[in-house]
């Protein structure tokens, strides 16, 4: 199969890391154009050094380039606001698909090991957030076994791994991730928290998932979580359970009060995860970057195999 040509819009941390992954690891995707808005950005300079065509005038510049015709897949790693504009242009081209790495969420949320199959024919899919990619598979793994009343996640990332876009849009992280915990993870109610830690040397990304589900045999939940961790590991090798899965029964006579749900009891499951990055653009501590770009790459490759195979 001929490689599928792709463009990346956004030459920040996420876009640059994704570019390096495609260049170094993909047998399916071919880096065609790297698009930025700042000619002096490190991402564009790096793209040039790596032999990738570049464009410093955003989406409007990209569609004027000769490469544009052959591009089948566009990854957008800009910001939620910029994505709305970019999408309005790209959607006019029927032969092109969009993988949205911003929290804009115009299209449905996609978490590869959970709901890829539901979105094979969707033009624009959204990759939720870094914290969402790390934790929603776990919420979904619990949902497979028991009804999840509530799913809560805490993402701790190194300050150095949070670029200006992430910093200026913390609300988008919490809102988008919470929604995806419900829509993709299957929880009745979702909550997301993000914490930035400036420690030196930088701390590796940590994610904690708490679920409150109906009471079932904890061993079934444990097995489902282990299976899911192995699935995620296939495309994010640095993803792991950092501690044994913890269980606690919240008894009916001592329920917890959850905003939006009221009093709830059941089985509390606590999952402590770690995501070590592949060290492609930022060092290993930036697991948040790695899980996002790895999920987008896995999605792009799967889509290419299926959707573009016959064209």
């Amino acid at each position: 199969m001929e490689k599928i040509k792709v463009a990346i819009i956004g030459s920040g941390n996420i876009g640059t890391d994704l570019m390096i992954k495609i260049l170094r690891t993909s047998d399916i995707l071919e880096m065609s154009v790297m698009v930025g808005i700042d000619p002096a950005s490190d991402g564009l300079a790096r793209a040039k050094r790596m032999g990738v065509a570049t464009c410093a005038t955003g989406i409007s510049g990209l569609i004027e380039m000769p490469e544009w015709n052959d591009i089948k897949l566009v990854f957008d790693a800009t910001s939620a606001k910029a994505h709305i504009f970019n999408n309005s242009i790209i959607e006019k081209y029927e032969d092109k698909r969009i993988i949205d790495l911003t929290p804009a969420a115009i299209g449905p949320f996609l978490v590869p090991p959970v709901n890829f199959e539901d979105n094979i024919n969707v033009k624009n899919v959204n990759m939720v957030t870094c914290g969402g990619q790390a934790t929603i598979p776990i919420v979904a793994a619990v949902s497979k076994i028991a009804k999840v009343h509530y799913g809560e996640i805490v993402a701790s990332i190194a300050s150095k791994s949070a670029g200006p876009g992430t910093r200026a849009n913390i609300d988008e992280f919490t809102v988008t991730t919470s929604q995806a915990i419900e829509k993709v993870g299957g929880a009745d109610k979702g909550k997301a928290i993000i914490v930035l830690n400036p420690a030196e040397p930088p701390m590796v990304m940590r994610d904690t998932v708490f679920t409150l589900s109906e009471n079932v045999d904890p061993e079934l939940i444990r097995a489902s979580i282990h299976e899911m961790v192995d699935e995620v590991k296939k495309y994010v090798p640095g993803y792991s359970l950092h501690q044994a899965v913890q269980f606690e029964e919240i008894p009916e006579d001592k329920p917890v009060f959850i905003e939006g749900l009221g009093l709830r009891h059941g089985l509390k499951t606590t999952v402590l995860l770690q995501v070590v990055g592949a060290g492609h653009y930022l060092p290993e501590y930036a697991g948040n970057l790695d899980i996002m770009t790895s999920a987008a790459l896995a999605t792009g490759e799967k889509l290419s195999k299926l959707a573009f195979a016959n064209s």
Partner: peptide, 18 residues
């Protein structure tokens, strides 16, 4: 020692398990 900052209460369980 681990330089935990405000909000990282989940890391208390982590430390305890270690």
């Amino acid at each position: 020692n681990r330089n935990m900052v405000g909000g990282q209460e989940d890391m208390i369980i982590d430390v305890a398990l270690d």
